[in-house]
Design a binder for these strands. Structure first.
Length: 844
RNA sequence: GCCGGCGUGGCGAAAUGGCAGACGCAAGGGACUUAAAAUCCCUUUUCGCGAAAGCGGAGUGCGGGUUCGAGUCCCGCCGCCGGCACCA
């Protein structure tokens, strides 16, 4: 019995407190309007990226971010904030559907089971979520509002004059369907014949399906799209007001990929067709020596001469059959074919041969370029390969080798000669606009968001089709719930699984339901809003709840702190910002941005320093760590490993280390008696702390407080270790030491802190104490030790009074025997005194 | 190729431009014990001298620079990790 006993009985008190917190709803946050709502408290909304409840259960990586937010949530509660700290489930997704196909069991069944397991695991770590606010994206009461938001997008357009989303009724043009923020277009999608399903880009690795490694081909299908490109500029501008890592902001800016330039009209020589190109270098127009169209460009057919037609068609066929992988491999070598046609350069009337090449993408700009091989590396490579002329029109300011792509001075460019690149750009753009041959334009890499999936386990669209036209369902018809099915197998064609349920598809005599579903991103785009008011049946979020939790800080973003992994740096965080801005423009929300401050936790690697994976066999599960060492040890270890944002490897020895620390804290308060029972330690006494003890105690209050604010949890913990080392041998041991330590420790190790607080008979609970403030005067020692340096090398130490004058310190340093020895025959040039730190004697 | 991030003991790491290595792990030694576990104490960047207390030198990826003083700031390299990838 005694040999197996744990150093402290965490296995008894941890489940007890977890049960206590859940059953008492200990961390429930009151909403404005609730009877117990306290108007005097400031709000603090701290959010985790909610998990996909996979069958594998919680990962230690989840626990890392969730512990960080839990510490901050508990800290803010103790500092008198009304804290919103919710959790939910991003539960639509492919794995549940794949499992359903294999076993015939409904995805809802596996999803429900996985959610129950995740909830159990999260509660076993002792997180202080407000479980009354739990939401799941798969719950009809939730996705009713996901569908409702889709209808807001469907019923809006982006007004370029106001630069805002507006109700479609304010659009006065002929075809409202052409400007809706949600629209239908025929788009190539990734079709995987072996899996019998369409895949998202993220599910394709190196041109093959992530699951199974099967080939994927492009097929054009009717798809729902969201017009995120209309918000490109707003999405870039909005980043300025956010406290996000600069790297993430940059990633988003690059993803949106704004570039300024000009569109220029070229005229095809024989047929007179207009070919519009986009260029960021209109100043090099005189250097264009040929043109290239994308193989998919609509003018290819009419421009191609009969002599060239066979070659062109062969090339287009080859390109069309290439998967993305093959096309990427082709990048190493430029390819293309001459169409036989010519275009006229509008600035000098020169004839330019028109080629097609797959390095020109139909999806960017106009799908056609003017090639300036002297000043663009890709054009240069192409010109080299096919023997096309190269004409230099920009002189570099200093000599460069090879193709010059930088700024310089225009040459061989007629009226632009002598102008610097920026001036030449302005001049030529004005000239083009005056002649009606072009204009300044901006292009983005960002594409509209392909929003439909051919899946069962997703939100159905609230859309019906009649006579080939789409119509929105009325709000009171929401939610549109998927029908139950027995057979989840793919249809074998790109028809969505829902199309098999004919009685569901049939909406009326004439109308049929849309059978596509929304992507997994949909539910996660707005869940942070639903947390503010999770059971509201009348609105996606109540106005007052939105104003209170998302507003009132005077900053653009509503969520005060959002912690999660880098994998969502672009897509989720961009999509959510887009939806938020639309809802904001439509007057449904109070702030223009969802997340004010963002922090990315670093990845936790396996003990071997490799990414954790089942195949490597290096996965650590939270359940196993909790069983052996307890939840507090798991929490504390993950925070002690290193800086939150850094990647770091797991070490079970490290877990043991923090476990020993917690055992030492336990023994500060408790002692084993003759019968092997834990009793309050007899060395504890109501005596004042010595000045040395008080200094450590107050230094700990200060450092833990500062470090939590800075998210430097590892150093906060090491300071509490210093504190414990100071008191562990004290006898008598002042009771005040525990009155100070336990509340400081409680955000990190809430179970142990609460248990000891109760056993010591202190009032209330450790987790509801008011956060302590340190007494600066207790930190000050009357004497300080200074290092005495000669030319930067430490030669002696000096103990002086705290308030000694600079002169007194300098004189004492000059008298030091060791300093005099180090000076030798040199002369003192000057003496630098840094009070409280050191003295540096500079000698020549 | 382009854009980010990071390089400090045997390991995880710490250090407002001011005594490099706090705290933890591992290792070694000791106390307690019949023994082990647990616990407690001591040592532990490295090299040289010394029986020892100690004394001296070197040291934060490499090379320069700024400064009384650089892990920290600046310039140029090298290496590792992550993201994007023909975006005209």
């Amino acid at each position: 019995m005694s040999t197996q006993r744990r150093p402290f009985p965490f296995h008894e008190f941890e489940p007890k407190w977890q049960e206590h917190w859940v059953s008492r709803r200990a961390f429930r946050a009151a909403n404005p309007g609730d009877v117990d709502f306290d108007h005097s408290k400031p709000k603090y909304y701290i959010l985790d990226m909610f998990p996909y409840p996979s069958g594998d259960g919680l990962h230690v990586g989840h626990v890392e971010g969730y512990t960080a937010t839990d510490i901050l949530a508990r800290f803010h509660r103790m500092r008198g904030f009304n804290v919103l700290h919710p959790m939910g489930w991003d539960a639509f997704g492919l794995p549940a559907e794949q499992y359903a196909i294999k076993t015939g069991r409904h995805p809802r069944e596996t999803t429900t089971r996985n959610i129950a397991n995740f909830r159990r695991q999260l509660q076993a770590v002792g997180f202080s979520y407000d479980w009354d606010r739990e939401v799941s994206t798969t719950d009809p009461g939730y996705f009713k509002w996901t569908q409702w938001i889709f209808l807001q997008l469907y019923n809006s357009w982006f007004n370029p004059v106001t630069r805002k989303a507006e109700p479609i009724a304010t659009y006065t043009g002929p075809d409202p369907d052409s400007v809706r923020l949600a629209y239908v277009a025929k788009m190539p999608v990734n079709w995987c014949p072996q899996l019998g399903t369409v895949l998202a880009n993220e599910e394709i690795v190196d041109g093959k399906s992530e699951v199974g490694g099967f080939p994927v081909e492009r097929r054009p299908l009717r798809q729902w799209m969201l017009r995120i490109t209309a918000f490109a500029d707003r999405l870039i501008e909005g980043l300025d007001g956010l406290d996000w890592p600069e790297g993430i902001k940059l990633l988003q800016r690059n993803w949106i990929g704004r570039s300024e330039g000009a569109s220029v009209m070229f005229c095809e020589e024989s047929g007179g067709a207009k070919i519009e190109v986009f260029t960021t270098r209109p100043d090099t127009l005189f250097g264009a020596t040929y043109m290239i169209l994308s193989p998919e460009h609509p003018l290819v057919g009419s421009i191609t001469t009969e002599v060239q037609r066979a070659d062109i068609e062969a090339y287009c066929t080859t390109v069309a059959s290439k998967s993305d992988l093959d096309r990427t491999e082709l990048n190493k070598e430029k390819s293309g074919v001459f169409t036989g046609g010519y275009a006229i350069n509008p600035v000098n009337g020169e004839r330019l041969p028109i080629w097609i090449a797959d390095y020109v993408l139909m999806g960017y700009g106009t799908g056609a370029i003017m090639a300036v091989p002297a000043h663009d590396e890709r054009d240069f490579e192409f010109a080299q390969k096919f023997g096309l002329p190269v004409r230099e029109v920009v002189r570099p300011n200093e000599a460069v080798e090879g193709c010059f792509v930088g700024d310089g001075v225009a040459i061989n460019s007629g009226f632009l000669d002598g102008l610097s690149t920026p001036d030449a750009k302005r001049t030529i753009t004005t000239w083009l606009e005056e002649k009606g041959l072009g204009r300044g334009t901006v292009n983005f890499k960002l594409r509209d968001w392909l929003f439909s999936r051919q899946r069962y386990w997703g939100e159905p669209f609230p859309i019906i089709w009649e006579d080939g036209r789409h119509h929105a369902l009325a709000e009171d018809e929401l939610p549109v719930v998927q029908p139950d099915m027995d057979d989840f197998k793919p249809t074998g064609t790109p028809e969505p699984p829902l199309s098999k349920v004919s009685e569901w598809v049939r909406y009326s005599e004439k109308a049929e339901r849309e059978t596509n579903t929304m992507p997994q991103w949909a539910g996660s785009c707005w869940y942070y809003l639903r947390f503010c008011d999770p059971v509201n049946g009348n609105r996606f979020v109540g106005e007052e709840a939105d104003r209170y939790w998302m507003g009132q800080t005077g900053q653009p973003g509503g969520v005060d702190l959002y912690i999660g992994g880098t994998e969502h740096a672009v897509l989720h965080l961009l999509y959510a910002r887009f939806w938020h801005k639309v809802l904001y423009d439509l007057g449904r929300l109070t702030t223009p941005e969802p997340f004010q401050r963002l922090v990315n936790q670093g990845m936790i690697l396996g003990p071997d320093g490799q990414k954790m994976s089942k195949s490597r066999g290096n996965v650590i599960t939270p359940d196993a760590v909790i069983a052996d060492y307890g939840a507090d040890s798991l929490r504390l270890y993950e925070m002690f490993m290193g800086p939150l944002e850094q990647m770091k490897p797991w070490s079970m020895k490290g877990v043991e280390g923090v476990h020993r620390f917690l055992a030492r804290v336990w023994r500060l308060a408790m002692e084993e008696n003759q019968e092997g029972k834990w009793v309050v330690s007899p060395v504890l006494a109501d005596v004042p702390m010595t000045s040395a003890q008080a200094r450590v105690a107050h230094a700990t209050i200060k450092k833990v407080t500062d470090d939590i604010r800075a998210l430097a949890f590892n150093t906060a913990i090491s300071q509490m270790m210093v504190f414990t080392n100071e008191f562990v041998n004290a006898s008598p041991r002042p009771l005040d030491s525990l009155k100070i330590l336990l509340p400081l420790l409680s955000p990190f190790a809430p179970h142990l802190s609460e248990e000891l607080w109760q056993r010591l008979g202190f009032d209330g609970a450790a987790s509801t104490q008011t956060w302590l403030t340190h007494d600066e005067s207790l930190l000050i020692d009357n004497e300080v030790e200074l290092a005495v340096q000669v030319n930067g090398k430490v030669r002696d130490r000096l103990v002086v009074a705290r308030d000694a004058s600079k002169e007194a310190i300098e004189n004492a340093a000059r008298l030091s025997a060791k300093v005099l020895e180090a000076i030798g025959s040199g002369t003192i040039v000057k003496v630098i005194v840094v009070p409280g730190k050191l003295v540096n004697v500079v000698v020549k």
